[in-house]
Amino acid sequence: MHSYILAILLLLSPSIAAAEDADNNRAVRNPIPDRLVVLTFDDSARSHYTVVRPLLKEYGFGATFFITEGFDFKTNKKDYMTWEQIRELHEDGFEIGNHTRDHLGITEKTVGQLPEQLDGIAEQCKAHGIPAPVTFAWPGNALTNAAFETLKQRGIQFARRGGAPEYPYEEGRGFAYQPGLDHPLVIPSAGDARPKWTLADFVRAVQQARDGRIAVLQFHGAPDTAHDWVSSSEQNFAAYLKYLKLEGYRAIALRDLQEYVAPDVTPADYRTVIEARRKTLEAQPKTASE
């Protein structure tokens, strides 16, 4: 892990590196401890309530649940939570984030629909006694900077993407969040759990949480009975949380980043660090496992 992060810095010219250091210093409010992770869960899966919730409570971990009414959420309560269950997650102290009303991928073509998509979830939150969301997850991991202003207007402080484009979507791999380098509205997933993941895949993701970097983890259901290609088995998920507990990790919600990171400090171009990482990966020799 250290090698490619160091390589990223070497890719930057001295003047750019100095500017990035200044951005990092301004972005960080409080020292970021090693082994700090953010747990996030997408798509309103029913197992978030039946499986994930009790395990998080057992270990005392925080988390963000990104809620959408997309797919067949309104009629299918075999695979998706009810709003009453979502409210219970809030009452337990977990964060409820916004994943758009219809799970709409936000691109330059669809960004005009973003206000109503955000408002649809915010209004349901209000109706069920849940605060308006201050975090967002990009549906389908599609994104455009044309959405930034709307997100800010709707009170969104932090937004999470996937591990792409640095890594292929199918691998579920990614980079840890680097405040000052990564835009707070384009926070990468250090890992996006998949059915074939083993504990080693999870460990590879979370061990990036050091030296001022925060590992933001993306999950769907455990299991995800509606979307098997992003599902985690209950057994695997329990093993992941047990590892975090045994190894002394602190797990927080995405909103809790504000303790450490100033959400109004942004890089000049969110793509700079992404391109640096991609070039670093392209320059690395391939291993047998890859």
Rank of each mutant, 00 (worst) to 15 (best):
I5D: 10
I8T: 04
L11H: 13
A19R: 15
E20R: 09
I32C: 06
R35L: 10
V38Q: 04
D42P: 11
S47L: 04
S47H: 02
S47G: 04
H48R: 08
R53Q: 06
L55F: 05
L55H: 07
A63E: 06
F65W: 10
G70V: 12
K74Y: 06
K77F: 12
Y80L: 05
T100W: 13
D102K: 11
L104S: 08
Q113G: 05
E116S: 14
L118R: 02
G120P: 11
A122K: 09
E123P: 03
Q124G: 09
H128C: 02
G129V: 11
I130G: 02
P131T: 08
P133H: 05
V134R: 03
F136M: 01
A137D: 00
L143N: 14
F148Q: 08
K152W: 13
Q157S: 12
Y167I: 02
Y169L: 15
Y177E: 09
A190E: 09
A190N: 07
G191S: 05
K196P: 07
A200V: 05
Q207Y: 13
A209P: 02
A209S: 01
D211V: 03
V216Y: 00
L217F: 03
Q218A: 10
F237P: 04
A239D: 12
K245L: 00
L246D: 14
E247R: 14
R250K: 08
R255F: 07
R255P: 07
L257I: 11
E259V: 11
T266R: 14
E282A: 14
T287D: 10
A288T: 11
